[in-house]
Simulated scan of single mutants.
Amino acid sequence: MGLSSLAWIVPVFSACVWLAMLIAMIVTWSVQGFPQYPSMDPNQKIAYISDIGASGLKPLFIAMSIVTVVSFDLVFVFERWLRHTGRLAHNTSVWQKVYSICSIIAAIAGAAGLILLSIFDTRHHHNLHDAFLVLFIGGYIISAIFVCWEYQRLGIHFRQHSILRISFWIKLSFILLEVCLAIAFGVLGNQKKWNAAAIMEWIIALVYFFYVLSYFVDFLPALRNKHDKRTGPTEMDMARMESGGDAAADGQRYYRGGQTNGRTNGATNGYTNGATNGLNNGYTNGHGASEYPKPPETYPASRNF
C-alpha cells in the first residue's frame, strides 16, 4: 500500500478511535446507572468526559487518547511529504512551508495536551488537568489556523483545485466553532453551571471528531494522481500525438521505429523529389524554347559541278 492510499485512511482511523472512546465512555456511564463520580460536584448530574475517564476507565482513556492524537499527527506529516513530492498541490513559497511546519508543531503540542490530561486526571490533579485541556484545545485550534493560512495561499495559485477551497472552509468553520464553544465552556465552568459545561465539553469532543475526519478529503487529489499514473499517457499527451506541430517530434517517443521510418521516408522522398525536380528544372531552364540550338542550314547543290 502506497503512502497516498495510506494517508487518507489514517484520519478516518483516528476519528473512529476517538468516536469509539466517547461511545464507550457514555455507554459505560449509562450502564452503571448514571452514577455521580467522586470528581463531580454534588449539584452536577451530567458527567464530564474527564470524570468518566478518571473513574474506572482511565486505562482506556489514556490508550485511546494516545492512539487518536499520534495517528492524527501523522496526517500532518503525510500531507507535508505528499505536497513536497508533488502528489498534492506543491507549495509555491517558503512561507507556505513555514505555515505547514507550524501547523505540525502546534498539532504535536495539542497531542501532548490530550495525552497529559488523560494521565493527570481531574480527580487527583485538577489544576494540571485543566491546564493540559487548554493546551489540547488551543494547540489544535492554532494548528488549524496555520493550515487555513497555507491553504488560502495555495488556493490563489491553484484556483482549479476546488478541494483546497472546500478544505479551507472546513478548517475555518472548525476554528470559529471551537473557539466559540471553548469560550462558552470556560464561562459556564466559572459560573459553576456544571451540567451545561459538561454538555458543552461533549459537543467540543464531537466537533473534534468531525475535524479529524475531514482530513481524508485533503488526500483525494493524491489518490487521483496515483490512478492517473497507472493509466498511461494523459489526455494532453494524446492531444499532442494527434496535433500537427508536436506529433512529428513526439511520435518517436510513443512508437517504435519512429526514428528509422523518419530516416527512410526522408531519404526516399528527398531522393525522389530532388531527382525529379532537378531533371525537370534542368531541362526546362537549360533548353528553353528560345535557347534550342539552331538546326544546320542546307544549301542547294552547285550547278558548276
Rank of each mutant, 00 (worst) to 15 (best):
L57H: 13
F13A: 13
K226C: 05
K171D: 05
R224C: 03
A182N: 10
G155A: 15
I203T: 11
W81R: 14
L133Q: 01
K294M: 08
K294F: 07
S302N: 09
E150Q: 12
M1R: 11
R240K: 11
A198S: 15
V27G: 05
Q259T: 12
I166Y: 12
V94S: 14
Q96P: 03
G257Y: 15
S5V: 13
F61E: 05
P42E: 13
F305C: 10
A63Y: 04
A111M: 10
P38A: 13
S4E: 15
Y151P: 00
I156K: 14
H287R: 08
F209H: 08
G113Q: 00
Y37M: 03
L172N: 13
A198P: 11
W169A: 01
P296K: 10
I156D: 08
S173W: 00
G53Q: 05
N91M: 07
P59Y: 10
R240H: 07
G139V: 01
S143D: 02
D228G: 01
A222L: 14
C180Y: 07
S4P: 01
M236A: 13
D121Y: 00
D130F: 03
S162E: 05
A24T: 14
Q96V: 08
S290T: 13
V27M: 10
I142M: 08
C180G: 06
H287P: 00
T28G: 06
I119G: 01
T234I: 03
K45F: 08
R87I: 03
V94L: 11
R83P: 04
G33N: 10
A131L: 00
M21L: 15
A144H: 01
L188I: 07
L172G: 09
Y299E: 14
H125I: 05
S93L: 04
S100M: 13
N269L: 01
F13T: 07
S5I: 10
I163K: 06
E79A: 06
N281A: 08
M1G: 12
M236V: 09
S5R: 15
G270L: 05
E178W: 00
I108C: 07
G258T: 06
M241T: 03
A106T: 04
N265Y: 12
L82G: 04
R83V: 01
W194E: 10
R80I: 03
G257D: 11
N91E: 11
N304E: 13
L164K: 02
I9Q: 14
L116R: 00
A109V: 15
V134K: 02
V12D: 03
A248G: 09
N304L: 08
